[in-house]
Structure formats: structure tokens, C-alpha cells
Design a protein around this nucleic acid. Structure first.
Length: 467
RNA sequence: GGCCCCAUCGUCUAGUGGUCUAGGACGCCGGCCUCUCACGCCGGUAACACGGGUUCGAACCCCGUUGGGGUCACCA
């Protein structure tokens, strides 16, 4: 029923950073929420700075996040004919003209304006010259000199710009290439984009674009300028603020849903709710709860949210996300059922998938390396008897269920007079090499009789050799 | 500097004139739980930038100040 069409227009001059991903997300969510369309457009008119590698990086990041587009990707570099055609239209209708002022001359005008009253703009020297096409000539837009242009912004409200503040900006460079403000408008018109959600660093471009829409006789889209994402020091996001690319978060073991949840919540709210599943976001997202002020990117909160998403996810759904990390550690983890059990025990103690993979190691290797401190503290001669006793008890068990295991431990406690804590720690070190791990019964059950007994006796041997 | 935007705990935010001695989340600090580490639970810390109005009554409306951000290209 809806005919909302949004778009995401990254320029391929580097990786996709979290700020850009957020505006992409807003557009995607809004399209999904309204049942509309989401268009991907690559803004690569700056041939010098655009690279194929960046394009691929952007695709990869979007794919990982699960943001799929319905139309495109369009490449502006392949649409020059269309831009030419629109320049022609403007020239023919008298809304654009050729200008032969040199960059130096224009720069001079700006300096003068800056010195005089603060208005740094082209003075319209060639406006009425009636110049035709030629070497070193640019095409400028003949902007209205008086009156005002109003931006009716869906998040910021009405913003009024005096036309006298704006100048006759360039539509087509002297080398024939179109400029940003122009191509954006032509693209948005020809692609049917009717809802533009973008960073508010674009507000000052908007009046120019609105004038272009009008000069071209096109309907205005809905504009929604969302506040920017800032770094901890409240300055614009940059590499010195730490990990900023979407791909980095992927590599650090974040779940795409967690990143999405965090990014959307940064600047948008739904009452007090902090945790959202992807579908909930689609269901609840709307333009009218986007905040007006800039937000600081907080890695701690993202990490906490990631932990929450890990906990909330069924083990089976975590498998595809965790497997690459396991593989990187040389763990094949082919048995899905086993992996599921492993994940279940690790979920509440893993804030990232990377942590989870590292914590899973002892489930997959038989060469347990004892942490030095752990061994010194817990693998001492006095636990030799309890350990051997436990082995005997365990050997007698057919069923390694938690209940049976508890019984076995209880009997060892009985005969030795030791508390569970005294026994559990040495066993934990014997089984995992570490002093921290999932519950002792859980890991014994998952590891299974054979491996548990092997590791226990190995620990006993270790103690004997030491003393 | 001109133009534009913004302003609630350290951070993300709820709040749309009275129910706010301002709520939630992250962080931080206590405690409980406990076989370790976590998880979980309970409690605490901490904010309406400032000054004027408007109103019987302002976090919410208006003006100003201050502070922060954006933008002023033949980049996008």
C-alpha cells in the first residue's frame, strides 16, 4: 500500500563506518516499516577518491548487517548522460548559465565577501553575460536572489534560509563532470526517491537542492535530517575514536543484530525499551521519535548490548556466527549438537563471539595447558586423593547426567570431608586449565566420561611428577 | 567570521504545562546468590546549562546568554 522509497548513497572512499551505517539503517528500516522500497546508490562521481575496494567493503558490510536493497546498486559514474540531459534542461529554461570565471577569481570574491560581511559567495558576475559552452567554462545554477527557501524537515521542523545567503553554485564543472548537489537531486528525482533520511551535516545543502527541485518542476521529497554521531570527546567520529568501521565490529565478535540495535537506539527511541530484535525494529521504527541532538558513540554500551543479544539468541542461531571464530583458532566444530551444548554453557559469560570462541577451546582440545597460577594453587599433593577417589566414582557411573554426577561428587565429599568448593576448583583446573569456567557439572557432562577421566588422571600424574 | 542546528544523570535516552522530591539503560559503587568466572537479583551514585519572561503552575512555551555541533569547494 505504501509507496515510500528511500535510499542509501554511500560514497566509496573508504570502509563503511558506523555513522554511515546508521543512516543506511534508518532508511532501510523506514522502507521496511512502511512496506516501501530501499535503493542503494554508489556516489562515485569523484573518480579520484572512489575505489572498487571501497565499493566491495560497503557491500560486504551491508550484507553482514543483513541490510538488503530492493533496487540498485546504481553507480553515478555510469549516469553522466542523464546528468547532461538535466543540465541541458536547466540551460534551456534559463535556470542555468555558463560562467568563465576562474577558480582564482571566485576565490577572490569569497575572500572579499568574508572580509566584508561574512558572506562567502560567488557574486554572479556571469549571470547575465549570455555565455555559451566553451573551454574552461562551468555551468552555474541561476538561483533566486530574493525571498526565502523553507525546508520542512521531518525531524527538525521548519528551517528558513534567506535566498540572499545562497549563491549560484556550480552544476557542471569545466571538465564536464556534474557536481554533488546536482547529481543528488537528479538521481533522487529519476529514482523516485520520496523520503530522504540523512545526516544533518546536509541541512545547509538542502536549500540548494530544494531550489533545484523547483527549477526542474519536481515534487519535493520528505527530508529527515538525523543528528550526527560523535566520539567520546564530542567531536566528529574519526579513527582516533577507536573502532569505527562496521567490519571491525564483525571481526571483534559482535552480532549484527546487536550493532543494529545499538546504532538505531542512538538517536531513536521507543519509550524505555533498550533491547530490540530486528523485526521489532522494523515494526516500531518511525521518523517521529528520532531525537534532535547529536549522540556520543559509547562502545561500552554496545558491548553490553552485544552480551544481551548473545544471551537472548538460541544456541543454534549462534552457530553460524561463532563458527568463523572457531575456525580461526583451528577448531572445526563439525558436531552441531555438541557445539550447541558448548554454546549454551558459554552464553552467559561471553560478551563477544571472540570471547566465546576462546572460552570454548578446552571443549575441543585434549592437550590441557594449566595456567601457571592455577596449577600452583589448586594442583597440589593434598588433592591427589580426592582426585583419584573421584576418578573411581566416575568410572562407576554409566549415566553422566547432572544428577548422577552430583551423587559422585557428594560421595567424594563424604569420604574426604571436603566441601564442594575444595574439590571443584582442582577438577576445574584439571579439565580446563583455568580457574574460571562454566559450572563443573555442566562441563563434566559435556566432556563425557572418557575425556574427563583422562584429564583427571593426567592432572594426578602432573601432581605426582611435581612433588 | 556569516548562515544553520542542538542543549535532561559521565554516556544513550523517557518526558510533549500539573501524575517529576524527573523514569529506564550503560558505566561506576555496595550487597545477595554461588563449585570458579559470569549471568541473575536487590540497593546506591548521578541530570532538567544559565538568566529573563508567559502562566495559578514550567524539564516541557517565548526571548537572551553561554556552550557544543554542522556548513560555507570546479569533495561527497
Amino acid at each position: 500500500m505504501s509507496n515510500i522509497i528511500t535510499r542509501f548513497p554511500p560514497s566509496p572512499t573508504g570502509y563503511l563506518h558506523v555513522g554511515g551505517a546508521r543512516t543506511g539503517l534508518f532508511n532501510w528500516l523506514y522502507a521496511r516499516h512502511t512496506g516501501g522500497k530501499f535503493v542503494l546508490r554508489i556516489e562515485d562521481t569523484d573518480v579520484r577518491r572512489s575505489t572498487r575496494a571501497s565499493v566491495d567493503a560497503i557491500f560486504e558490510a551491508l550484507e553482514w548487517m543483513g541490510i538488503e536493497w530492493d533496487d540498485g546498486p546504481y553507480f553515478q559514474s555510469k549516469r553522466f548522460d542523464i546528468y547532461k540531459e538535466y543540465v541541458r534542461k536547466l540551460l534551456d529554461s534559463g535556470r542555468a548559465y555558463y560562467c568563465d570565471c576562474t577558480p582564482e577569481q571566485v576565490e577572490e570574491m569569497r575572500k572579499r565577501g568574508m572580509a566584508a560581511g561574512g558572506k562567502a559567495k560567488y557574486d554572479g558576475a556571469c549571470r547575465e553575460k549570455g555565455l555559451s559552452a566553451g573551454e574552461n567554462r562551468v555551468v552555474r545554477f541561476k538561483a533566486p536572489l530574493t525571498g526565502a527557501t523553507v525546508l520542512e524537515d521531518a525531524v527538525k521542523g521548519n528551517i528558513v534560509f534567506q535566498n540572499a545567503e545562497l549563491d549560484d553554485f556550480i552544476l557542471e564543472r569545466s571538465d564536464g563532470a556534474p557536481t554533488y548537489n546536482f547529481v543528488v537531486v537528479v538521481d533522487d528525482i529519476t529514482m523516485g526517491i520520496n523520503t530522504i533520511i540523512r545526516g544533518d551535516d546536509h541541512v545547509s545543502n538542502t536549500p540548494k537542492q530544494i531550489q533545484l527541485y523547483k527549477a526542474l518542476g519536481a515534487d519535493l521529497p520528505t527530508f529527515a535530517h538525523v543528528p550526527m554521531v560523535l566520539g567520546k570527546d564530542k567531536a566528529r567520529l574519526s579513527k582516533r575514536h577507536g573502532a569505527m568501521s562496521v567490519t571491525e565490529y564483525q571481526k571483534m565478535g559482535y552480532l549484527p543484530d546487536a550493532l543494529i540495535n545499538y546504532l538505531v537506539r542512538l538517536g531513536w527511541s521507543h519509550g524505555d525499551q533498550e533491547f530490540f530484535h530486528r523485526n521489532e525494529l522494523i515494526e516500531k521504527f518511525s521518523l517521529d521519535h528520532i531525537g534532535k541532538s547529536a549522540g556520543v558513540f559509547d562502545p561500552d554500551k554496545l558491548l553490553a548490548l552485544n552480551a544481551e543479544h548473545i544471551q537472548a539468541a538460541p544456541a543454534a542461531s549462534l552457530i553460524p556466527h561463532l563458527t568463523p571464530f572457531l575456525k580461526a583458532m583451528g577448531i572445526a566444530a563439525e558436531d552441531q549438537e555438541y557445539l550447541s551444548k558448548v554454546i549454551e554453557t558459554l552464553k552467559p559469560r561471553s560478551k563477544t563471539l571472540l570471547e566465546m570462541a576462546e572460552a570454548a577451546l578446552f571443549y575441543y582440545t585434549d592437550e590441557i595447558v594449566y595456567e601457571e597460577k592455577a596449577a600452583r594453587k589448586f594442583l597440589k599433593p593434598d588433592v591427589l586423593d580426592p582426585l583419584n577417589l573421584l576418578v573411581t566414582q566416575l568410572e562407576g557411573l554409566n549415566d553422566f547426567s547432572e544428577k548422577e554426577l552430583e551423587g559422585a561428587f557428594l560421595r567424594v565429599m563424604d569420604t574426604t570431608g571436603l566441601k564442594l568448593g575444595k574439590i571443584a576448583q582442582p577438577v576445574r583446573v584439571a579439565l580446563t586449565g583455568k580457574t574460571a569456567s562454566p559450572g563443573i557439572f555442566e562441563i563434566v557432562e559435556i566432556l563425557g566420561k572418557e575425556r574427563v577421566i583422562a584429564r583427571l588422571t593426567a592432572a594426578a600424574r602432573f601432581i605426582e611428577e611435581k612433588s
